[in-house]
Design a protein around this nucleic acid. Structure first.
Length: 581
RNA sequence: UGGGGCGUCGGCAAAUGGUAAGCCACGGGACUUUGGAUCCCGCAUGUGCAGGUUCGAAUCCUGCCGCCCCAGCCA
């Protein structure tokens, strides 16, 4: 948002660009704009818009579009409008409008006073529709949906005009006015553009531009019972707002001829907005379809739109993602016209890079294993200074209490260590971060031979974590003092899907077949540093050696809940994985 | 078998006729009080395929092949 992240050194791309002014990496849309500017097409102006339909929550794919549209406007000293494309009241809700505004703002973009609704233009659109009828470029059609489909032909068979095409302008105008007046039931008639039933482009075979929908509208209320179709409305919205570059996704490429037709036939002022299509974002191991996401929410497979496993902006936010990381990601993936699938590892990389720089470090033991220091005095408590962020000395240090009974991570102990395991095992010495070296002397088990406690000794000469004789344990462990730690819940998230691309994983399996049953693991009884007692929902931390965590709104006083945003890179896990084959 | 797009490393993606950037991932090494971070090194004798033009082709031409989108009164 406000702070410009001073990345350690210039970005490699910028270095490649070769100047201090760091020209952004280019892409075909920038080139189109540059050409327009060179030719003076829009008088050097750049006016874009982000036009969501309020029928769901925004996701990471929308973030790409938001960053593109608002980013381009910023770059070229232009403007970007937030415009709700609310032409279908049967699917739209105020809740979605609110969430979208919130998400765009959270991402760090500002539409100032340019918040628009397509529905605010309905009267003008209606008047223009009448003009089309008067010009003989539109007619009221009485066909049923099935009949429309039949007359339309197929991909390889041209369509044919229905009788209503010939009914005359006056009749159409009269009927259209009565449609608006509410004389007909839903679906009884439509207004259609009159173009070419034989066009190879099916979008030009007299597309429907108005339909009857007796439904209240979340923004326009009950003012209308006929609503314009996207294909008719969108070019007009753009024209009304003097949009110069109307950026949308690839599937609308086929619609561009109609987009231009509408503006041309209505003889709207030049220069007309230019529609430009780019490839939408696809991300591995997740879903990028509003329909499927809605299904997850409705089926209760996730707790809501903001479930931290969701690729929604609200889900990512709750998970602990930062707007900076998402914006960086959007820039790095580039903009092109080829269908692509971006590895979610890149998103995670951008996040780690951002969080590493700014997240406060803290020690938290997720799966506690009790450690008793046999040679440490009962009741003694020491406090150690622990750095808050090694990446940022200015973040200072904090005091962390240490005592005879501690907890360490259960994963950090093995009774019989595999090769290259450097952590605790009988007889081995390790460092407790910022505290002492300890050596495992004895393993205490319960009746079922579960390890329940480690008896260790500490070396008092290693206070602070370094030995006078210079010996250096190969492992440094995080820990908490049993009597001082705070109990917490941790929610560990993994990918939503078990496969990178459910559509490619095939064999006729539905995407739901690939939902990851391990996408959420809830851990209770975690022990965290007492300094976390004052943490507020949304606060982010690095739990040393484990990952980045974010305080969930489900937290209660004294009972914090942490979402694991992303793990740290874990080279031991890789070694272990390889050992397992 | 109509129309519209797109094919460059495992994944993104530059190169705009002058001899294949960068990032992620992956592999190796250095350093390390986070097996974190950081830093080094490696990673397309070749741009879907086949021809052609040219001193020179990922870029131009021809012909194939493959993938995506379109038959909502959704957007």
């Amino acid at each position: 948002m406000k702070e410009k992240k001073p990345r350690a050194g210039a970005s490699p791309r910028q270095e490649h660009a070769g100047s201090e002014t760091a020209a952004p990496p280019t892409h075909f849309i920038r080139e189109i704009i540059n050409e327009h500017n060179k030719a003076g097409k829009f008088g050097g102006k750049v006016a874009t818009r982000f036009p969501p339909e309020p029928n769901g929550y925004l996701h990471i794919g929308h973030a790409k579009s938001i960053c593109l549209n608002f980013g381009l406007a910023q770059e070229y000293g232009g403007t970007c409008n937030l415009r709700f494309d609310d032409t279908n009241p049967t699917k739209e809700e105020q809740e979605y409008i609110d969430s979208i505004e919130n998400d765009v703002r959270w991402l760090g973009f500002d539409w100032e006073d340019r918040l628009y609704f397509a529905s605010d233009y309905f009267e003008q659109m209606y008047l223009w529709a009448e003009k089309l009828i008067t010009k003989g470029k539109a007619y009221v059609c009485d066909c049923s949906p099935d009949e429309v489909r039949e007359w339309r032909g197929t991909l390889t068979k041209p369509g044919q005009p229905c009788v209503h095409r010939e009914r005359g302008r006056e009749a159409s105008l009269d009927l259209f006015r009565r449609m608006r007046a509410g004389e007909f039931p839903d679906g009884a008639r439509t207004l259609r553009a009159e173009i070419d039933m034989t066009s190879g482009n099916i979008n030009m075979r007299d597309p429907v531009i108005y339909r009857i929908l007796h439904a209240p509208h979340p923004h326009a209320g009950d003012a209308w019972c006929i609503y314009p179709m996207y294909d008719y409305a969108h070019p007009l919205e753009d024209a009304i707002e003097n949009i110069t570059h109307s950026i949308c996704t690839l599937e609308f490429e086929d619609h561009r001829p109609f987009y231009d037709w509408v503006i041309d036939e209505l003889e709207l002022p030049e220069p007309h907005p230019q529609q430009i299509e780019f490839a939408r974002l696809n991300l591995t191991h997740t879903l990028m379809s509003k329909r499927k996401l809605l299904e997850l929410v409705k089926a209760g497979l996730v707790i809501g739109w903001d479930d931290p496993r969701m690729p929604t902006i609200s889900g990512l936010r709750r998970r602990g993602y930062t707007p900076e990381a998402i914006r960086d990601f959007s820039e790095r993936i580039g903009v092109a016209k080829r269908d692509s699938m971006v590895d979610i590892a890149l998103l995670e990389h951008c996040l780690r890079e951002d969080l590493n720089r700014r997240a406060r470090r803290v020690m938290a033991v997720l799966r506690p294993l009790k450690v008793v220091l046999e040679n440490y005095r009962d009741g003694q408590v020491e406090e150690f200074d622990v750095p808050n962020n090694p990446e940022d000395p200015a973040a200072g240090t904090r005091k962390v209490p240490f005592s005879k009974v501690l907890y360490v991570e259960r994963d950090d102990f093995r009774e019989s260590p595999p090769p290259k395991f450097y952590r605790l095992y009988p007889g081995n010495e390790v460092r407790l971060r910022s505290a002492y070296f300890i050596t495992c002397k004895e393993v205490v088990k319960d009746a079922d031979s579960n390890v329940v406690e480690l008896r260790c000794t500490y070396d008092r000469s290693t206070r602070g974590g370094s030995a006078p004789d210079g010996r250096r344990p190969k492992a440094t462990l995080h820990w908490v003092s049993a009597n001082h730690a705070l109990e917490a819940e941790a929610r560990l998230y993994d990918h939503l899907l078990t496969v990178p691309d459910p559509d490619a994983a095939g064999e006729g399996k539905d995407w739901k077949w690939f939902l990851n049953p391990g996408s959420l693991e809830t851990l209770r009884g975690c022990r965290v540093e007492a300094t976390l007692a004052g943490a507020r929902p949304g606060d982010r931390f690095q739990f040393e050696r484990l990952g980045y965590f974010c305080v969930d709104p489900d937290s209660a006083a004294g009972k914090p809940v942490f979402n694991r945003t992303v793990t740290l890179r874990d080279s031991w896990a890789k070694i272990e994985q390889k050992q397992k084959g």
